[in-house]
Design a protein around this nucleic acid. Structure first.
Lengths: 128, 128
DNA sequence: TCTTGACTTGGAGCTAACTCCAAGTGCTAT
DNA sequence: ATAGCACTTGGAGTTAGCTCCAAGTCAAGA
């Protein structure tokens, strides 16, 4: 599978795919004789995985570490698990921040709806 | 309230507070005779609001727009409400992305737990 | 054979959101 | 009055994560 096809399939620009490879997030991509990338099924699964993790804001650096550990074989299984657990913790934290913000947005929108007047004006002291 | 105090109270660096002011996110901060910022209670409420919105990833540009509309008075109430609704939509989208990623992380961590073997190895084809 | 178009590279440029710095000002305590 | 410290400014630097560009290569079709 050439880069254009993969790009289309996962809605990631060719530049992004090359960038991921450059920084070590997609190592060992096979090339044709003339140097053109040929992505395997396994490459595609990694790409899909990376895209999912990125969509939740996991840093590229962390994903590089995961990929690197993965390449080092079964000796790094515990480390990888630990890494995933850490990322889950910070993901849950972010989700909690968002939940709070969502509640607040809901409250504000409701205020606008009820009175057509901003809640900042109605509740000068206890707005939050 | 001087900048150091506000900085401590909301865990935002003085540089960040000055930056927010510079870009128009905290307009009309009162100054003492010698030019030193003196934050009011209302300023603090805005700061707390901004901090909350930022923690959920709302872009500064959007918050600037909200503050600007707010300053223009009641004529902008509908616009402000619309802005908040749009932000709620994209917040919900982000939360959904995270929920999916969380599930996947949970699945992977479980796999590591069950077998001590990475799910990538066990489920070469249907991993996702 | 010549053109077209997808690919290659290295490196520069961009955006968001800070973060840091140097040089200067002005209370306050000794 | 002088030392120290918190504050001021304008502007430069940083980080993450892309995104763009110029110049070049290669395979395939008219």
């Amino acid at each position: 599978m050439m880069i254009a096809e993969v790009s289309k399939k996962y809605d990631l620009s060719p530049d992004t795919l090359r960038y991921y490879e450059r920084v070590g997030l997609l190592p060992n991509i096979h090339r044709s004789k003339s140097g053109i990338r040929d992505y395997t099924e396994e490459d595609c699964r990694w790409i899909e995985f990376i895209k999912c993790m990125r969509s939740a804001g996991l840093p590229i650096e962390v994903l590089i570490e995961y990929v690197t550990l993965f390449q080092q074989g079964d000796a790094t299984i515990d480390k990888r698990k630990q890494l995933l657990i850490e990322q889950r913790v910070s993901l849950l934290q972010k989700m909690e921040d968002m939940r709070e913000t969502l509640e607040r947005l809901n409250f504000k929108i409701e205020s606008y709806e009820k009175a057509g007047v901003p809640c900042e004006k109605k509740l000068t002291k206890t707005e939050n």
